[in-house]
Design a protein around this nucleic acid. Structure first.
Lengths: 199, 199
DNA sequence: ACCTGAACACCGTTCAAGT
DNA sequence: ACCTGAACACCGTTCAAGT
């Protein structure tokens, strides 16, 4: 438990944590390096000992978000190793839950605020690892005849895009009010995923 | 042609135009009210005569973006009134083209930078009008047996989400390199939309 | 090695004043 | 009615200096 004694200690992780908290409390617009520093109890220039600039902190927060997302997906998928269809459905639901619960972290991960993702190797690594996980589920589904035969990476992008698109529209308030009166996001995504599955 | 003579003239539209240009040239991170004012040739406080705050300018830019998107969709759809399947496919392609061509405007429309969309009636109006257009195409497809029978708004969100999701992932650099070597975004979206269509 | 404080350029917003 | 200029609080970033 390496936690409460910065001033020295691991300020780097304390800053990431502070960033996530500010994000959750004030949203993207409220996230400033100076506030993050203050919340971690250090001077406004202290973060520069651990991050090159604000973009680097955002990259670290996004990377942390992707790690959590990956873990949630894994946890949702692994119990159903013998039933790919369930993996697909449960994985999609886990994705939705993560996005709705950590909406500001999710937004920062996918909202283009991070400008040069390729400059951050650990971000690239976890995001491609996440894609591979999706691909494995898709492939298992294809082998079981649950999803159509097609290049697995193409099918995986379709599936991920379907889930991601609905969730993104939802977070943007773009799902029509009359639909939301009858169905929540989880069930809308369920419907869309079921549509992809071979009858 | 009401264009080149602000100082007086319609500064409001000049500011929106300047904003779009800065966005295209420098991206979301470079968009400041002061730069917009400077580019329009007025003092940094002049915009406040026309917009309540920065959010209002962003709302205006997003609204303008939605209007253009709507027009592109209409233009892609209207020639194929008798073949709903073509409307669906061409509409999706028009969506992709708009997003790729105006990527920063597209991002600002959907990236959660605009915080209280509901406060901007003309934004709400054009975005719901756009959704209705999608719904009409979907309904025509359903009547022609091209898309499955289901509540039209639910099906419309699935279709829009599918297209929007893939495009968003693409703009975020989240489409795997190995897939992009073989297929461009347009053809990936084509594949995904074809998957939704009744065989 | 890690952190502080002063400094600089830039930003959003307000307001009194000008035409 | 529309625009300017000074002012204020806040921000990202740098750097010399402290421990």
């Amino acid at each position: 438990m390496p936690s409460k004694k910065y001033h020295h200690g691991d300020l780097k992780n304390a800053l990431i944590k502070a960033g996530v908290e500010i994000l959750a409390k004030e949203g993207m617009g409220g996230l400033s390096l100076r506030k993050v520093a203050q919340r971690a109890g250090v001077s406004h220039s202290a973060p520069y000992a651990h991050f090159l600039d604000k973009q680097s902190l955002i990259a670290a927060i996004s990377t942390e978000g992707f790690n959590q997302l990956y873990n949630k997906l894994e946890a949702a998928i692994s119990p159903h190793a013998k039933t790919p269809k369930k993996q697909l459905i449960e994985g999609a639901q886990a994705y939705v839950r993560f996005a709705l619960k950590n909406s500001d972290t999710f937004k920062i991960m996918f909202s283009g605020v991070l400008e040069k993702e390729k400059d951050y190797p650990s971000f690239v690594e976890i995001s491609s690892k996440t894609f591979k996980l999706v691909m494995e589920v898709v492939q298992a589904c294809q082998n079981a005849g649950v999803l159509p035969t097609a290049p697995a990476n193409l099918m995986a992008v379709s599936v991920w895009g379907q889930v991601h698109g609905i969730v993104s529209l939802a977070l943007e308030g773009q799902i029509s009010h009359t639909l939301l009166e009858k169905k929540n996001i989880e069930s809308i995504v369920s419907f869309a995923v079921e549509q992809m599955i071979n009858s």
